[in-house]
Design a protein around this nucleic acid. Structure first.
Lengths: 106, 106
DNA sequence: TGACCATGTATCGATCACTTATATATATTG
DNA sequence: CAATATATATAAGTGATCGATACATGGTCA
């Protein structure tokens, strides 16, 4: 799973969001380091829906604009959990090696 | 930076290694969850060398087989450090949201 | 002896997520 | 009236990775 996909699933962890709302939430949760592009987001949502990790939630019209909401499926939640554990393990493994290399920087 | 690349840089953090040694170290540091394929490894080493993140170290012949060693450059070390910090931040952001979702699982 | 596996490096074609660019539409702000 | 924010959508191109294959040596096992 690549980073934009991981960020989309994370943005949906706290509840259903529409596409543009996911883009904003990803900006926040990445500390403004990642701004999802529309091309990435909408193709990823289609792909994740086809994979069963995400599913349509509801549609709303706000100020004359359509909002299409998505939510995590149980499988999507499980995928996010295992991917998160994986990321943490990799970060920890790298940090261990970096600390061994620079003991005084600790 | 994608995961195999991150793992290769991590494997080189503790000192120079040759290609096959990197594959083995990646298996260990990923808890056997990732087995680098030769195609990924050698093309990545060429690319990282061209990018200046990695450089040739030395060559040895052991049991009639050539070993080509690589080491991290200062730029490669910096890239690994910033990528590691980034991974940790993403993992933490996701964990925070997952814990909020399942308070009893803590 | 012959097969198989581990070691070791290398390259090619295919895949696929992502980027870039573009399109369309409404509401708000200067 | 132009620019920006909101909101979704798609097509072409890029590039790292995957999968397969190639070649060579050394050790093990039947």
């Amino acid at each position: 799973m690549r980073e934009p996909t991981f960020l989309i699933l994370t943005a949906l962890a706290t509840g259903p969001r529409h596409g543009y709302g996911i883009i904003q939430e990803v900006t926040v949760l990445s500390d403004r380091r990642v701004t999802l592009l529309p091309g990435t987001l909408y193709t990823a949502l289609d792909r994740l829906t086809a994979q069963g990790l995400v599913e349509p939630d509801r549609e709303e019209v706000v100020d004359g604009r359509l909002r299409r909401y998505y939510r995590l499926t149980p499988g999507g939640l499980a995928a996010l959990e295992s991917e998160t554990a994986r990321l943490r393990q990799l970060a920890t493994a790298a940090e261990t090696r970096l600390r061994a290399l620079r003991p005084r920087t600790t």
